[in-house]
C-alpha cells in the first residue's frame, strides 16, 4: 500500500451515544483503497454501530466521516449506497419473499434510470434496461454460485447461501467500499475457510475495498492486513494483525480468549 495516497474512508473522532451509553467513543479509522480491513471486538463493542454511522442509519453525535475526501457524516442510507458504499447485515436482511434473482435485480436497479412514463408504457429504454439488468443479475449470481437457485424464494435458501446472496446483492450496487458485518457468523471451520477464499476472490476480481467486522481471529488473519480492536466503544489497538495480536491491552481484554 502506498502510504501517501488518500484514504478511501476516513473517520475522525466519531462518537455515538445512546442515552448515557457511549456506543462508540472518539473513533478514528483510515481505510486505504483496495485494503481488506478488519474490525475486531467482543459483542457490544460498537462495531455494528460504526457500520450504521458510516451508512447513515445513525447520525454521528460528533466527529467527521470522509469518503473519497468528501464529508458524508450526514448522509442518508440510500445516498450511501449511491456514492458506492454497500453492506451486509449481521442478522441477514434479504427480501425474503422475493426470488433470489429479484433480490439482486433490485440492487442493480439503482444504476438504471428509465422514467416512470417509460416504465408504464414499456418504451424501448425500459425494455432494454430490464433485459440488461437481468443479465447482470445472473452474472452476480454466477459469481457466488447461485445460478441454479435464481428462481427460488430467498428465504428458502440455506444459511450459507443466504449470506452469499446478501454479498451478491451488495456487489450488484457496484460499490467502491463493501462493509461485511460478521460474514462468518455461525459458520464452522470448513465453511469459514470457504468464506475466506470467496472473499479473497471477490476482492481480486473486483476493484473494491473491504471493511469487515469479524469475531473469528483466524478469518481476520487470513484476510486482513490492517485491523482495529474495539472494546466498549473504545479503540484498544490499531495496526497490522500481527502487531495487534502482540498488543498487551488486547491480550488482556481477551485473556487469551478468542485470540
Amino acid at each position: 500500500m502506498n502510504e501517501n495516497s488518500a484514504p478511501l474512508l476516513e473517520m475522525k473522532g466519531v462518537e455515538k451515544h445512546f442515552g448515557g451509553v457511549h456506543a462508540i467513543d472518539h473513533f478514528d479509522l483510515r481505510v486505504m483503497p483496495r485494503d481488506i480491513y478488519g474490525l475486531i471486538g467482543p459483542n457490544g463493542a460498537g462495531k455494528t454501530t460504526i457500520f450504521n454511522t458510516i451508512t447513515g442509519i445513525y447520525q454521528a453525535d460528533a466527529g467527521q466521516i470522509l469518503f473519497e475526501g468528501k464529508n458524508i457524516t450526514k448522509i442518508k442510507p440510500h445516498q450511501a449506497a449511491e456514492i458506492g458504499i454497500a453492506r451486509t447485515f449481521q442478522n441477514i436482511r434479504l427480501f425474503g419473499n422475493l426470488s433470489v434473482k429479484m433480490n439482486v435485480i433490485i440492487a442493480c436497479n439503482m444504476r438504471s434510470s428509465y422514467s416512470i412514463a417509460e416504465a408504464l408504457l414499456r418504451l424501448p429504454r425500459y425494455r432494454n434496461t430490464t433485459k440488461d439488468i437481468e443479465e447482470r443479475a445472473m452474472g452476480y449470481l454466477e459469481s457466488v454460485g447461485l445460478t441454479d437457485k435464481a428462481d427460488d424464494i430467498a428465504s428458502s435458501l440455506p444459511y450459507g447461501h443466504q449470506r452469499k446472496l446478501e454479498i451478491a446483492r451488495a456487489m450488484a450496487t457496484e460499490p467502491k467500499l463493501l462493509l461485511l458485518d460478521e460474514p462468518a457468523a455461525g459458520m464452522n471451520e470448513e465453511e469459514s475457510i470457504d468464506l475466506v477464499n470467496f472473499v479473497k476472490k471477490l476482492h481480486r476480481d473486483n476493484p473494491i475495498t473491504i471493511l469487515m467486522i469479524e469475531h473469528h481471529m483466524d478469518v481476520v488473519s487470513r484476510l486482513c492486513e490492517q485491523c482495529t480492536v474495539l472494546d466498549f466503544g473504545k479503540t484498544l489497538a490499531q495496526g497490522t494483525v500481527e502487531e495487534v495480536k502482540q498488543n498487551e491491552a488486547v491480550v488482556a481484554a481477551y485473556l487469551g480468549g478468542e485470540l
Partner: peptide, 11 residues
Amino acid sequence: ENEVAAAANGI
C-alpha cells in the same frame, strides 16, 4: 420485505 435493506440498496 425489509426497509433497512431496501435503503442499503439505494432505495
